[in-house]
Write a protein that binds this DNA or RNA. Structure first.
Lengths: 209, 209
DNA sequence: GTCTATATCTAGATAGAC
DNA sequence: GTCTATCTAGATATAGAC
């Protein structure tokens, strides 16, 4: 019954990536969709097209599978968002806000990111290590970048660059939370562009020529 | 065996509030601690000191119990935070930010609120009605108040009061999320006061005397 | 490593006596 | 409404053949 055994070379419905990779992909999908407690090893096995025992030969138990999956995902998402360390520091303030907004819009349109956020927040008390990885790699890194900008650009007269970076980041991310994560985009109609322009105006106000 | 029957009048370990109230309190505690899927009717029954069947005589099933509990909790939390509609509109900008900050600090120090937030976010895809109630009653109401302030205070030259209100609220709430909900207060050391003062500075910059 | 088969437990939910 | 008792399904996890 199992035609695709061991080392067949060619094209198959779920191609030759090894069972482990199949399990990982299925686990990502299932955990993101149903949460930790809502995901059963049966569901994962079924979605992966393997038998349950196979999962246990690759991962010690459900917890370890979950941690491995989410940790990897969190780090992967960051890699996408923070690569190309373009010469951001040399931008004009308006351009800088535009770039920030652009990076944010990527997150805003990524349902997988929203699901990851739901999961990290929902499980943050039971899996604090994962929440910490997220804060470290996503939040602190993103804020560090913006913070550096406000620190360097003395003409903007920002007394507390870190707090200012937090205000920018917080404005955008909270918009994502209300509209996409919590699904309130129909009852809370505030466009990203309006936040962007208001931030620009605030920065102009600080400027002393 | 059940000494505290029907209409006894006096002091008992879990006093005379009726089984329903016992169930509600136990359910709140258990759901907040273990999440929806992580909570079993057995756990709730045990925590409430009743037998499982008793729960089913008050609530149709687990979903209905969950919805009833969370809906009530969400609304109750708002009641606390938005009562006393003090004459906020007549405050000076700095005072206004101080009041906002004060209200926010209450949330910042309320572990039950953080747990509720975790639950609402974590279950927002499976219980969108609850997420919507939260956005409507907490977020939109809070922002509406701030938005009105910026609308009225023309001297602040805020072109988009709604966006500005969102920036203020988003700065504060995202701080709560990183530090309390996700537990990152040790790796992300930004005090509320610094955000508060930076917001004040930004408003001063907009002002045209 | 991968499967078959199974052990063990706990889940949500209900029937029926009182 | 509340309890005892129980049904049935599905959970995590493993033993043992290949």
């Amino acid at each position: 019954m199992n035609v695709q055994d061991a080392n067949s070379t060619a094209e198959l419905s779920t191609p030759r990536r090894g069972k482990r990779e199949q399990i990982v992909q299925a686990a990502v999908k299932t955990f993101l969709e149903h949460g930790y407690a809502g995901t059963s090893m049966n569901k994962v096995a079924e979605a992966a097209g393997v038998i349950k025992a196979t999962i246990y030969s690759h991962f010690k138990d459900k917890q370890q599978l979950f941690i491995a999956i989410i940790e990897e995902m969190t780090i992967k998402k960051v890699a996408i968002d923070f690569t190309n360390p373009e010469p951001i520091l040399s931008l004009e303030p308006d351009e800088f806000i535009d770039v920030l907004t652009g990076k944010f819009c990527v997150l805003m349109q990524d349902p997988e990111y929203h699901a990851l956020f739901r999961l990290l927040v929902g499980e943050s008390e039971r899996f604090p290590e994962l929440a910490e990885i997220y804060v470290r790699t996503v939040i602190l890194r993103g804020m560090g970048l913006a913070s550096k900008y406000f620190e360097v650009h003395k003409e903007l007269n920002i007394e507390d660059p870190q707090a200012m970076a937090h205000i920018c980041a917080g404005s955008f991310i909270s918009l994502m939370v209300w509209q996409q994560v919590l699904g309130g985009k129909n009852i809370m109609t505030l466009e990203v562009g309006r936040v962007r322009e208001t931030l620009k105006a605030l920065l102009r106000g600080q400027r002393q020529p």
